[in-house]
């Protein structure tokens, strides 16, 4: 009996941390193919730093996936937040400490719009966020369709400073992970995402938690817009374009289930690093840029397949006879 329990614990541990193993194997593969590029000591830090904005977007998408929903508009929320932030940052009268609050507040407001349409009115999340994807995208270009380079240092500090950038992302990740795993709200959030009907019968309001997910997602997407701006020390209308698919891939690779309620936020670290390592590896292998898009698409499909297989392996190993 003890051996059976230990076997089950080992299987569970390996499955829950499979993305770490995948990260190590992928890095190892590229390191064997291109050791001179992949074995540089600063590679991990550089990779982590350059992908903090993507990490924040993956966190945004992970929140909505955990709530049992889906958000196509997080990239455009990041872009709109960055546009508003850059416009406000150019105004001299605004205090600098207030500037960094603009993008996450704009993001949260966009999330509130999604929350109202999905949770308040009851419209389909996929269709709503497809619509708001287009709305936010258009609004971004209306507000600011030019590149902005003269931004205050305080505004770009978050993305420009490597230590601050990585440290801030880790604080966000650890905070959300702690709330999800250790607090009663996190438990209820996961229950509402996993089985809304059962959660309701237990006195939990699933729509409230889903609304909080959309607002929180918007908040982190806004932060991603700020990070994108800081990383390039400028605002560009193309900021965060097409990033929703990479963010989605990062969340699914991290083991956030597509059916809601399952997954650990902490696994976004290896999930996003895995995307970064693949991107870096394909770059050092000089893979054609168009072929890279194909390969990333294949990667997203593979991530979905792995998520499905993982559950089947877990079921087979853990179902009682």
């Amino acid at each position: 009996m003890a051996l059976g329990q230990n076997r089950r614990r080992i299987i569970l541990f390996l499955l829950e941390n499979s993305v770490w193993m995948l990260l190590v194997c992928t890095y190892g593969l590229f390191a064997v193919l291109r050791p001179e590029s992949m074995m540089k000591p600063s590679l991990i830090a550089d990779t982590a730093y350059s992908n903090v904005p993507l990490g924040l977007l993956s966190l945004a998408e992970a929140l909505v996936l955990l709530s049992g929903s889906f958000d196509l508009s997080i990239g455009q929320i990041a872009g709109l937040s960055a546009a508003v932030g850059a416009t406000v940052a150019q105004a001299e009268s605004v205090p600098t400490w207030l500037l960094v609050l603009v993008p996450p507040c704009v993001g949260a407001l966009c999330g509130l719009i999604n929350a109202f349409l999905v949770c308040g009115i009851g419209l389909n999340a996929f269709l709503v966020t497809l619509g708001t994807f287009l709305v936010f995208d258009g609004m971004q270009l209306i507000i600011n369709h030019d590149v902005v380079i003269d931004l205050p240092g305080a505004y770009t500090m978050l993305g420009e400073s490597r230590a601050l950038s990585i440290g801030f992302f880790l604080v966000c990740l650890v905070s959300v992970h702690a709330i999800m795993q250790l607090s009663k709200w996190g438990l209820r959030f996961r229950a509402a995402g996993s089985n809304p009907a059962a959660a309701f019968l237990m006195g939990i309001a699933p729509r409230r938690y889903q609304a909080a997910a959309f607002i929180g997602s918007g908040f982190f997407a806004g932060l991603a817009g700020l990070a994108f701006t800081g990383y390039s020390a400028s605002y560009s209308p193309e900021v965060a374009d097409d990033s929703v698919f990479m963010a989605f891939a990062g969340a699914v690779l991290a083991g956030i289930s597509l059916t809601g309620g399952k997954g650990r936020i902490s696994n976004l670290i290896p999930g996003v690093l895995l995307l970064s390592v693949i991107s870096t590896g394909l770059t050092v292998l000089a893979v054609d840029p168009y072929l890279r898009r194909v390969l990333f698409g294949v990667l997203v499909l593979a991530a979905i397949a792995i998520d499905s297989c993982k559950e089947r392996v877990k079921d087979r190993a853990l179902v009682r006879e």
């Binding site: 996961r190 996993s194 089985n195 009907a197 059962a198 019968l201 309620g261 399952k262």
Partner: peptide, 10 residues
């Protein structure tokens, strides 16, 4: 309840 109002993932 007959559906047992339980959450499989917890």
């Amino acid at each position: 309840f007959q559906t047992q109002a339980l959450v499989d993932d917890l």
